[in-house]
Design a protein around this nucleic acid. Sequence first.
DNA 1: CATGAATGAGTCTTCATTCAT
DNA 2: GATGAATGAAGACTCATTCAT
Lengths: 205, 205, 205, 205
Amino acid sequence: MKLPRREREKLRQRKEMLAGALDVFLEKGYHNVSMQEIAAKAEFAIGTLYKFFKNKEDLYKTLVLEMSDGFNEALTKAIEEPDDEVEKLRNYVRAKGELFRANVSMIRLYFAESRGASFNVMAGLDSVIRERYDHFMQATLASVFESGVRRKRFKKIADPYHLAIALDSLTNAFLFLWLNAPERHPYPEDPDTILDILFKGLVGP
Amino acid sequence: MKLPRREREKLRQRKEMLAGALDVFLEKGYHNVSMQEIAAKAEFAIGTLYKFFKNKEDLYKTLVLEMSDGFNEALTKAIEEPDDEVEKLRNYVRAKGELFRANVSMIRLYFAESRGASFNVMAGLDSVIRERYDHFMQATLASVFESGVRRKRFKKIADPYHLAIALDSLTNAFLFLWLNAPERHPYPEDPDTILDILFKGLVGP
Amino acid sequence: MKLPRREREKLRQRKEMLAGALDVFLEKGYHNVSMQEIAAKAEFAIGTLYKFFKNKEDLYKTLVLEMSDGFNEALTKAIEEPDDEVEKLRNYVRAKGELFRANVSMIRLYFAESRGASFNVMAGLDSVIRERYDHFMQATLASVFESGVRRKRFKKIADPYHLAIALDSLTNAFLFLWLNAPERHPYPEDPDTILDILFKGLVGP
Amino acid sequence: MKLPRREREKLRQRKEMLAGALDVFLEKGYHNVSMQEIAAKAEFAIGTLYKFFKNKEDLYKTLVLEMSDGFNEALTKAIEEPDDEVEKLRNYVRAKGELFRANVSMIRLYFAESRGASFNVMAGLDSVIRERYDHFMQATLASVFESGVRRKRFKKIADPYHLAIALDSLTNAFLFLWLNAPERHPYPEDPDTILDILFKGLVGP
DNA sequence: CATGAATGAGTCTTCATTCAT
DNA sequence: GATGAATGAAGACTCATTCAT
């Protein structure tokens, strides 16, 4: 289970580099940060940085990719846990909120990489990231709506994939409000604040 | 009303510069475009560029800002035209779709800058754009929901501002689907495809 | 005939750059010279250097190529002038000596490149230079021997091309002696000092 | 006679390092090869390389120097063997041809360094190599001509040292032809193909 | 004693900006 | 006022060398 000391050390270094890089990338943006700066922040020599990442872009992509994987995993777990579809969605909204709150700075990077498109994380993302995100949307989130409709928990008001897109964009939108002005727009404790927009009809009886 | 010839000429030049700059920014992104390239594209001397914009950043900010203003204006107009609230929303969804379709490349630039917090190419740019965007959301789009509720066209399922955010994020999400794969995800001709997600309740009777 | 002032100025700058570059290349060799150094020596800004030559290699290749062309031209002229074949060869030896003496430093650069084959600083350079050199040997110098034999001025002791190679290598060898120790090995005033090695038989009657 | 095991082992390692270094130097040239590469090729750790050679330059010089010594030795032996001067020269031409053919890649390295004067990769190297080369020319090769003249085998058409230089440059020239295009210019089986240029007179009876 | 991870000075090159014409 | 040649600071990246293990 335990890795050899050498390996552990390597992993620790890698982590420190990524952490340092994240810090400065967030502060100044990809293009305004020099490798010098990253090296200084992470307290390694430049050459050492290049031992771990083959270039600046590689370092950056790694950063965003690992993050995105962690998020997908956490959200997938949140959805899989409960049995009931409504509960799955509530759990999803809750988990996403916690994830954001626990990783504010990473989130900024994540969305920044998506060219800042708040509504849709897909835009401009590196193809690898978008692929995994797509898979999550279609295979995981959409299927919740699909099975919900099949089991008569939901009415079939739209295509399940579209509903998945809708929920994703709604949560993102509210999380962005919070991200940019936490005091003015606290992320709702009660997931239904968001879900009601989907659950209840605006028009009609 | 008519500006002196000198002034008119200046304005025309400014426009050409911005147009040239937009072309190359879109093609390659802010950091991968040089002022030489912009000058060449717009067919002006570099020095002349600097007569109109104090530096590269200024040129870029101007570009994005003017674009964003145009969008806000078009959407505001779309909302103001019809009387009925439901019709206003339909018009909004339609107009936004047309706007996107007519300005695909501009859109990318617009969203690249309007979100992503401090991690943007130019940190300062965000605030101005977001301010105007916020104003549109709160003063214009939210008020449609508010008056809709007041006039019993809508049920009060959520805070009007939240509904505005929701609609904005929904339209964006669908437009991005279309943006990234137009054949697989055509932007719905019928605005209700999107609006139904808001209009109809997923859960309940 | 006279170029516009702008153009003349450009040419002068180019020349100065090449001269500066030659100086430092000779002193330290291609790889041990930085563009900073060349720029400093030529008294231009680095950026200006890059306006004229697209990179370090281009600057270097230009230097060597222009030189080699100049030499080929001068030697061709030297051979063409007299009528008599023996006189042609004498003129060639004389001209080559003068050329060397007037361009010591350039010569060093030339031989650094035209020898050593693919192990050279820039393998690609060779081929262009060698091609032109080959053409000179085969088309120009060899034909002197050939016509000399035809016109009974020379005995047919070897293939004309081989004789051309021989004469070239002989002159080079003596010039190298002089290059490395001018006092100990002055380049012979009298071309026959060299030519006699070809003209007179070492063995025989 | 037999060295202690330790010493023998050391010598074997040194040899392997030099062999590995030669391989990569030949393939890419001095400046395009890193110590890491040499270490990898020779299958030693970098640190171990530095135990044997104090730096990259030292390693390189050693390589070229040992090679050049081997050549001088072989050529000296070739000249010493026969009794007759003409035969000595024939043997020299033959031996040099064999030496080249057996060490094509080494040759490239040798000439890259033994010519081009100060414009070399390593200016300092020249002098040592040229010194030994000069010694060979003056003490060994020239004396063949000198004794040949003394013993009436040769006519005194030029200074013995000059004749040595001439023969050396002639063989080099033909070997270079062969080096660069072995099919088009095969190195002559019969040494007289080259020697006739010296032996027979181009002009005269 | 061998090792090879870590170092950081030094390289080429780009490009925003200035200013003499 | 327009021009664009000249500038040189700054950036990504390499690699010879050291030294702790």
